[in-house]
Lab assay of single mutants.
Amino acid sequence: MTGIVKWFNADKGFGFITPDDGSKDVFVHFSAIQNDGYKSLDEGQKVSFTIESGAKGPAAGNVTSL
């Protein structure tokens, strides 16, 4: 699925993605970002991701920028 990064705190390594389908915002951890180098996201960035079952509920996985 796709969405827009609502916010991401690079110091803490997590944030939230707002899915394009209008569903509830999804937690994203830096370890789910699939790019080389520094793993961070920018507010407003368009991303593709999967929904994984995290310890505290749904979380984004396999996050790639579009």
Rank of each mutant, 00 (worst) to 15 (best):
M1R: 11
M1T: 09
M1W: 09
M1V: 10
M1P: 05
M1Y: 12
M1D: 04
T2I: 10
T2S: 09
T2R: 08
T2Y: 07
I4L: 08
I4S: 09
I4D: 03
I4V: 14
V5G: 00
V5F: 02
V5H: 00
V5K: 00
V5S: 00
K6Y: 04
K6I: 06
K6V: 05
K6H: 10
W7K: 04
W7C: 07
W7P: 00
W7N: 03
W7L: 04
W7H: 04
F8C: 02
F8T: 02
F8R: 01
F8W: 14
F8V: 04
N9G: 04
N9F: 07
N9M: 06
N9P: 02
A10W: 11
A10T: 13
A10R: 13
A10C: 14
A10K: 15
A10S: 13
A10I: 12
A10G: 11
D11S: 14
D11K: 14
D11M: 14
D11T: 14
D11Y: 15
K12H: 10
K12N: 06
K12M: 13
G13N: 03
G13R: 05
G13C: 04
G13W: 02
G13P: 00
F14R: 02
G15D: 00
G15L: 02
G15R: 00
F16Y: 08
F16H: 03
F16V: 06
F16L: 05
F16R: 03
F16D: 00
F16W: 10
F16P: 00
I17P: 00
T18I: 15
T18G: 05
P19M: 06
D20E: 08
D21H: 07
D21E: 06
D21G: 08
D21P: 03
G22E: 05
G22L: 06
G22W: 06
G22H: 08
G22Y: 06
S23P: 05
S23R: 08
S23V: 05
S23F: 06
S23Q: 08
K24A: 14
K24T: 11
K24S: 12
K24P: 14
K24Q: 13
D25G: 04
D25H: 05
V26W: 03
V26A: 03
V26K: 03
V26I: 14
V26G: 00
F27M: 03
V28L: 07
V28M: 05
V28F: 15
H29L: 04
H29K: 03
H29N: 04
H29I: 04
H29E: 04
F30T: 07
F30I: 12
F30G: 05
F30D: 03
F30Q: 09
F30H: 11
S31F: 05
S31L: 08
S31A: 06
S31M: 08
A32E: 07
A32G: 08
A32C: 06
A32R: 07
A32L: 03
I33E: 02
I33F: 06
I33G: 03
I33S: 03
I33A: 03
Q34M: 14
N35G: 15
N35H: 11
N35C: 15
D36N: 11
D36L: 11
K39L: 08
S40K: 14
S40Q: 11
S40R: 12
L41W: 04
L41Y: 03
L41P: 02
L41K: 01
D42T: 15
D42W: 14
D42S: 15
D42G: 12
D42A: 13
E43C: 15
E43I: 14
E43N: 13
E43Y: 13
E43P: 15
E43K: 15
G44W: 05
G44H: 06
Q45D: 12
Q45I: 08
Q45K: 05
Q45S: 10
K46S: 08
K46V: 10
K46E: 07
K46R: 13
K46Q: 09
V47K: 00
V47Q: 00
V47S: 00
V47M: 02
V47R: 00
S48C: 12
S48A: 13
S48M: 13
F49Q: 00
F49A: 01
T50I: 12
T50D: 08
T50C: 09
T50Y: 09
T50A: 06
I51E: 03
I51R: 09
I51N: 04
I51G: 03
E52F: 14
E52T: 13
E52D: 10
S53C: 14
S53K: 13
S53R: 09
S53E: 14
G54M: 10
G54C: 10
G54Y: 11
G54V: 06
G54T: 15
G54I: 05
A55E: 12
A55Q: 13
A55C: 12
A55T: 12
A55Y: 13
K56M: 11
K56F: 15
K56V: 08
K56L: 11
G57F: 07
G57C: 07
G57I: 05
G57H: 07
P58A: 10
P58Y: 09
P58F: 12
P58W: 08
P58K: 11
P58S: 09
A59C: 15
A59S: 13
A60Q: 01
A60W: 02
A60M: 02
A60P: 01
A60V: 04
A60C: 04
A60L: 02
G61P: 02
G61Y: 12
G61L: 13
G61H: 15
G61M: 15
N62L: 10
N62S: 10
N62E: 07
V63G: 01
V63E: 01
V63F: 01
V63S: 01
V63L: 05
V63H: 01
T64H: 13
T64E: 10
S65A: 14
S65E: 10
S65T: 14
S65R: 14
S65N: 12
L66N: 09
L66V: 12
